[in-house]
Design a protein around this nucleic acid. Sequence first.
DNA 1: CCGAGACCTGACCGATTGGTCAAAACATTT
DNA 2: AAATGTTTTGACCAATCGGTCAGGTCTCGG
Lengths: 233, 233
Amino acid sequence: MTAPLPSVRAKRARPAPRPAAFPSRARRLKEQRILEAAEPVFAEAGFGGASMQAIAERAGLPKANLHYYFGTKQALYRALLARNLDLWLDAFDHIVPERDPADALAAYVRDKMRASWERPLASKVFANEVIHGAVEIGGYLSTKLRQKVDEKVAVIDGWAAAGKIAPVDARHLFFTLWAATQTYADFDVQVCAVLDRRHLTKADLARATDHLVAFVLRGCGLTPPAACPPRTA
Amino acid sequence: MTAPLPSVRAKRARPAPRPAAFPSRARRLKEQRILEAAEPVFAEAGFGGASMQAIAERAGLPKANLHYYFGTKQALYRALLARNLDLWLDAFDHIVPERDPADALAAYVRDKMRASWERPLASKVFANEVIHGAVEIGGYLSTKLRQKVDEKVAVIDGWAAAGKIAPVDARHLFFTLWAATQTYADFDVQVCAVLDRRHLTKADLARATDHLVAFVLRGCGLTPPAACPPRTA
DNA sequence: CCGAGACCTGACCGATTGGTCAAAACATTT
DNA sequence: AAATGTTTTGACCAATCGGTCAGGTCTCGG
């Protein structure tokens, strides 16, 4: 790979087709439109299986136009990932020392389940990227994500030290929570097959959420907040 | 797509290059070798991103040879999936009515964790297939897998009715168990990043297993078998 | 030793891939 | 209206894709 390439002139060092400096409003809107078309394609086919042509068709634009805005397929893919990364960390905000552990964990699980319902494609793109080695976002995982996890692990360890929660392995607890919640987005067709559904409904996800909240709280040695609190943040 | 295709003669109805009737021992060995080369390629790149050339190189064979044995890329992919499907169901054997629920669930989790350690690539190929819609194995999911799950859900419901286990939603419990165990195979690089490891070690997986067993048993309202039973099947 | 069928593979095919480019269209400001 | 910069796109490119095939080699029963 990356063979000598007998091409007459070396690949130009990016002719800088886009200003980048001042992304006008119209420009950002169009970029957004392309990203929205790219999401389902990358989610359904993976990076390797997705084609710029397919994305272009879904966006209703000529292929060359995508290259005008994003340069390369990889850059478009990266932009799509970047758009969703921070969204990933938001749920962590529930995990703070002063909050009641049961409340905090229940809210965390509900937030992640809501994300699986509202943005399943983003989750699939992310899952794909990680499964295939996280080539593009490896740096993010081992810096920003790890820091955030370390911080929240300390909170949970604090709860455990205060006897407010069973002494779980906080890091592995997070792995379990991520996996258990995202499975409803990433592996939806498997869930559908087992539940004998054509599509997952909001009611299915609500039931899954109730199961998970109760299961996780018990797993952490916490009493589920009486019977079943129907809603509330 | 599937345009008229002005090709002179229609695609031949598979010239049947392989006998299929009597797969000789030598033949099966070679097929196995090709499948083994295909596994990491499909796992790392997905179906769309994998190329027959890449698989051929990994197997140390000319590309045409792969086509001699498997005909098409899709057939090779299907064969690879089929090889691992039944392996998938084995762990279910622990879930039987007469067994102690805590024992059975612990054994189930340990089995699935062992699979994540021993055959992570198989898990990744499977995960990929499901994420991208389970086009090839959709039938399997909604028949064999669903039946098996229904059967085991009945066992767990039986335990619950007998008061031997908390009244969990058995089907969603399985989703949680699958997700929580397979995450160590499918999302290993994410786990690595957070744990600050280059590779996951057997010790890492052992710790993860202990966490999960304890967490799951508590989650089902069962007492973890005293402190920490170090091994035993 | 021979023939027949399984096995093997270099060369090749049309289609598709990501990406380029020059010229046209459009928008702004002067 | 002229000038300047941005956006748009059809046509095109080399590379690679999955797949085919003719003709070679190998194996083995007779």
